[in-house]
Amino acid sequence: PREEVAYVTCTYRCTGIEQPDFLATVDLNPRSCHYGQVIHRLPMPNLKDELYCAGWGPARGCFDSGAAAKRTKLVLPCLISSRIYVVDVGSQCRAPRICKMIEPVDVFWKCNKGHLSTTHPLPNGDVLVANMGDAAGHGKGGFVVLDGETFELKGNWENECEAPPTGHDFCYQARHNVLVSSAGVVPRVAGRGFNPDDLKKGVFGRRLNVWNLSCRSLTQCFDLGEDSLPQTVRFLHNPEAAEGYVGCALSGAIFRFYKSCEANNWAVEEVIRIPAKDVSGWIMPKMPAFIADLVISQDDRFLYVCNWLHGDIRQYELSRNCKPRLVGQVFVGGSILRGGPVTVCRDEELKCQPEPLVVKVSGAGPAA
């Protein structure tokens, strides 16, 4: 069935506004008079959390009867405060409420982890949350586990001495007993914002990590290049597929990872590289693409790329020869629009800077 609402995490970090972050509920029903509008805001009870990548709790439903599984809990990890909120979206989907909160001190003392990023439910029903650092803000990858029923903090997921230098996103394919995780940024340095002086100092991660899902052990690591910053990790939706993609924010490269012919070994290959642009009026003479997110279509035919700094969303066709082909592109913002403070001096892809996008909205203003 079509989704009736969407939930969006909203943060005030670095805006100068001293208000708590909030979870926005957006009406997706085209027959509603509030279609496309924010209909509810759920403020967090604390300041300066920086809500990050929200994820679903385990699905509940009767699979034997063929009934659709229902997700009733949303898990909100916080990047700066290291707090975890659990939100009940099942009782009132249009007006969710916080039903549990895990304080940072519990994460610090029980796991020696902090700066939480992404979350996914595990095959056994528990919830896995990735972290970018330790309690002091030093780089430290790995995961913490929440009980899938009570959402109590159970502890660390990975075996001792297995933590990568940094962490960020992850995805798994249960039928291949594999979990793949990406690198992040050293939190105590990156917390002040992007600084070109941090390049070539080990602040930005460069590794792609392959884990044995059932043993919770690190089995392979791939170096994707200095300051590449691999972030978003996506497997194909087909549960039998043994391949996926990872986007590197600063290098503008997208790698395909796949199971090689050698038993239980994985390999990587670069399949896309979005070139940097020579610019003036910016903090560096070259502006990287900064790949902020990847989405694979449900039928595994297309890969969608959020090219954040340049401001475009790209559509690549995923063909059988493993070389994605650019088939669509739309500019929705970014830093290189015509008439802005940045001038593009040399561009390998575009003949001229894109025009600003203007969206006309009819009707009344937002409902909330």
Rank of each mutant, 00 (worst) to 15 (best):
T11L: 10
H176A: 11
G141M: 06
A95W: 03
Q37I: 03
L116M: 08
F235C: 08
D278N: 12
I313Y: 12
G139D: 06
R346A: 03
V144S: 05
C345F: 00
V246W: 10
F222T: 06
A292E: 04
I313N: 03
L208S: 06
Y35L: 00
V186Y: 08
E160Q: 03
F222A: 02
H138T: 03
I272L: 14
W266A: 00
R175T: 08
N46F: 14
C14I: 01
A249K: 11
V185A: 05
V342M: 00
R71Q: 14
D223A: 08
L229M: 13
S81F: 11
P275F: 12
A190R: 12
P45M: 07
G114L: 13
G167Y: 11
V5K: 09
G252L: 04
E4P: 01
T343N: 06
N212P: 01
G193E: 01
L350I: 00
V129H: 07
K100S: 12
R60F: 15
F331C: 02
P366A: 09
V233L: 02
V330D: 01
I272W: 15
C215N: 04
D126R: 06
G36K: 05
S228W: 05
H310D: 01
G363D: 01
H115G: 05
M44T: 15
R31L: 11
K140L: 15
W211T: 05
I98Y: 05
N156R: 14
A253R: 13
D347G: 04
A67R: 15
G133D: 03
S280E: 14
I313T: 13
I313L: 14
L47R: 04
G281Y: 03
A364Y: 02
R2D: 07
N264Y: 12
D21K: 09
E270S: 05
C261N: 04
P324Y: 07
K360W: 13
R13S: 04
L28V: 07
P43G: 01
S182T: 10
P239A: 04
R31K: 15
V127D: 08
Q173G: 12
P43C: 00
R346H: 11
F170R: 10
K259G: 02
F170L: 02
R207Q: 14
E317P: 13
Y7R: 14
E349K: 10
Y316C: 04
L208E: 02
F331L: 00
C171W: 15
